[in-house]
Amino acid sequence: MSANVSMRDALYEAPGPKTRRRVAIGTGVSLVLLVALIAFVIRQFYINDQLNPKYWSFFTRWTTWRFLLRGMFGTIKVALMAGVIAMALGLLLMLGRISPNKALSAACHVAIDLFRSLPSLLLIYFFFLVIPKYGIKMPAFWMITVPVALAASGVLAEVFRAGVNAVPKGQTEAAMALGMTHGKITRKIVLPQALKIVIPSLVSQLVVVVKDTTVAYVVSYPDLMQNARVLISNYDALVSMYFVVALIYIAINYATNQFSIYLAHRQGTQVISRTSENPI
């Protein structure tokens, strides 16, 4: 049995009685703390008169929700597009970084570190303030999407690289011994295995992209946050609106996370079903 399979099986080890008791205690304590926290928040809302119906009544109107939903779709559109661009660019940057061509590798290394270390807000200001000075006009959608994608591409390149490094060296050596070239080895042997390894972290990284889109107001793009701000000034209802918006963001990211858990789980069951039919 190969070592990496047994290592992965270890991750699925069933908890023993001690672990189960510890998990039960932990769950109990967290539940009590959660209830206390909710009570505290409601009490604070009450003390500060935030439960006053004038802050909540407009949520009964369809127009409010329509506006918020539009914002939500704006957010999802930017996040999806930025996510797709970031994955493609991140993959290319990583391939450049691991290429035997020293100059290309160095250039990609610099680009990755640059995108990774610059705050996305700074990149957004660059596209919002600097680029137009050179006569290049971009729609608001792209002014938010491109910088968010660039910032994420640096991180994703490193995620991909971690996946590539996780593929055992023997896989590459066996392909080299067959006479395969670097490009072919990357495409046929390394990438297919690396991508499988990183799918869950890739999807989790999309959560970061979703969060990065919240500064779209800088370029006046009507995302969830921007539309919420409009409603806030219309109804003078800051706390209640941000409360609802926060719930929507949590819902979006919860869905994203569930998706990644589903993918990770499917991965796990694949490994298990493959090994369970072992003929020995």
Binding site: S2, P168, G170, Q171, E173, A174, M176, G179, I189
Partner: peptide, 16 residues
């Protein structure tokens, strides 16, 4: 390299 076959201690079959 294509002309020289190599068999490794750890087999190194392509896992995927």
């Amino acid at each position: 390299r294509a002309k020289v076959g190599m068999v490794f201690q750890s087999f190194n079959l392509f896992a995927h």
